[in-house]
Write a protein that binds this DNA or RNA. Structure first.
Lengths: 199, 199, 199, 199
DNA sequence: TATGAATGAGTCTTCATTCAT
DNA sequence: GATGAATGAAGACTCATTCAT
């Protein structure tokens, strides 16, 4: 593997293990198996390296959600959303500590934002994809027509996001099964709504 | 005002303005209008000071949600949830950068967690309060009986939480009116559900 | 007891327990049971306090050796020297860490020296007292006439001094009995000399 | 010369000139002609640096005493001891302020002790060497057979040690000649003993 | 005289970055 | 490109001393 890539992965690993604040060039170099000097042959600065790490985080999730659009009209809406929610929980689980960390350094956040903007990326993209899926299901009559797809997407992904945030905050781990159970529960609630119907 | 309190407020202000990573004892002292040494007459360490700041953040929100429980059976469920959502958006808006920052320092997070645990606090408390409110409305038949109150609370607060997270990530400010509009939209979606009913 | 005296004893205690370098005004005040500010009502500075502590150390030993001069011609020379050596070992045992510490701060040492000079004191005084005793025993023919009393005193007290120094350096404690045994051994050697005589 | 060595010598120099308590990393770096940061490229901490300095002190003396063992049976015992005493006086003269200083910091002393123990060193080693020499002279009949060699060595080196201690305490310098004279006097006294013989 | 909060100079240490090899 | 010793700016923290009460 290219040293450059090795360094990025080392940085990511250290950030996850020690937190942004305690991620030093020395430690990154140690994990990457190279000298501190080498870092500067591949990246302009420590911040530049961080930005490259951050750049690589979102795409995996967006890619996962892309599949969702291909499921319109297939299977049940509930099952499709469940797959999406499970992917979201997994993605948030591994990316949240790093993403949240950025708030500790507004400069880094600002520069990251610029990069996202240039590439037309950002955390909202995931919500848009889910909303797009729901919109297409609406066209097929599998989702209420008078519902705001983006609001629905926000409810679903928001619940997953905060769920992970709270668990990580509390250092409580959760099994894959428990995660799936949570997704099911939340989606079921979202599907039926709160209003007492003519049940 | 007591110097101790002044220091906490100064620390909070600097944390919000510069981020946890760039919050120095020197700057805190400058804003508090005292010497760096004085910080250590009131707090054991910089981390201790941070913990005191963090300690003061959640209670305001929990207090706000307490009012919600007194609204059971009064007004419409939708309106009551809207008040809660607006309070949540406001609270997340000001606390999220700081809360998220903590992930950059796992030690700080761990110690904060200990404090929360001792005081039986934590971010989940807000969700529990909303869930409790919904449960009592269920008893009055104003919310579907077969709905999981906690899942519903998670959907609502999760949406608000992630909404703020994304906006802050993107540095997009939002007016009070826009926030209220968002709350309304999301709640309406949550109330009716996604299932195409016998409309 | 006067607070002034309490402070001196507290300082002495802390110096012995934590070493000169780690003896802080805060700790002294804590042990003395008063505020840090109080220290400065009784002493001009921390150094001044140290000097007062140091001032009190030597006299106890000199007083002990004074008795020696009253023993001339009484008992055996060997026994008298043994009493002196035992007193020396005990005195060095408790004073050496503090005395040695002073070398870490030449300013303190210089000021202490001035004080000693004004009071005509100093560590050599002990050796002079033992030498004086030997001189008087020489007059009575109980010690070789052609021996240099001061050199003999230096040998005896020097051995005791270094013995304690080495033991404290090595953190080896020694029972009273072992100390007495050491004194006896050293004195016996000193008495008979190294030269192979006409034995 | 290697920077590491330069730093050790600088530290030693500053310790002698200003005392352990006033030896700062800033001053060491200034004398060594490097930045403070460089200190930490070669030593883990200031204490670590001190330990390395201390480590280098004793060996020179032990090496000097090694020669003594080769003199058994050669020249006069008196002359051989005189050489040893002169070496001891010179060694104590330069090492005592530093050695004594350690008592001001029990932690430093403890760590130094550990190092000495691992290397099987310590201040007692010098006395053992002199004792070993005397023992071999005993075998040749050049020293009384019924004398305790270690006690004799303690008397001699103890006298030298305390002599230097007192002089440094009093800030009295002593010429090489005066030192030699002192050695001669003390040895002569030790050789003949105090007991009034059948003179 | 006793207090103890406030001080600020000074200390050790860290760490991103540079550069000669 | 790779290295790693050297850097120096910046940081958190300590502590003797002061002073208003």
């Amino acid at each position: 593997m290219e040293l450059r890539e090795k360094i990025i992965q080392a940085a990511e690993q250290v950030m996850r293990a020690k937190g942004l604040a305690r991620t030093t060039t020395k430690e990154i170099a140690r994990i990457a198996g190279c000298s501190e000097g080498s870092l500067y042959n591949h990246f302009q600065s420590k911040e530049d390296l961080f930005l490259q790490v951050l750049k690589g985080i979102l795409p995996t999730f967006v890619a996962a959600l892309m599949k969702l659009s291909q499921r319109q009209g297939i299977g049940t809406v509930q099952d499709n959303l469940e797959d999406a929610a499970i992917a979201a929980l997994a993605y948030f689980h591994q990316s949240l500590p790093t993403s949240a960390s950025i708030f500790s350094d507004p400069d880094l956040l600002a520069h990251h934002r610029e990069g996202l903007h240039e590439r037309n990326e950002g955390p909202h993209r995931a919500n848009e994809l889910v909303a797009a899926y729901l919109r297409s299901e609406q066209l097929q009559g599998r989702v209420r027509a008078d519902v705001d797809p983006r609001a629905a997407a926000d409810l679903l992904l928001g619940a997953c996001f905060q769920h992970v945030f709270i668990r990580q905050f509390s250092a409580e781990d959760e099994s894959k099964e428990a995660q799936a159970g949570y997704a099911k529960q939340v989606i079921s609630t979202l599907m039926q709504g709160l209003l007492p119907g003519a049940e």
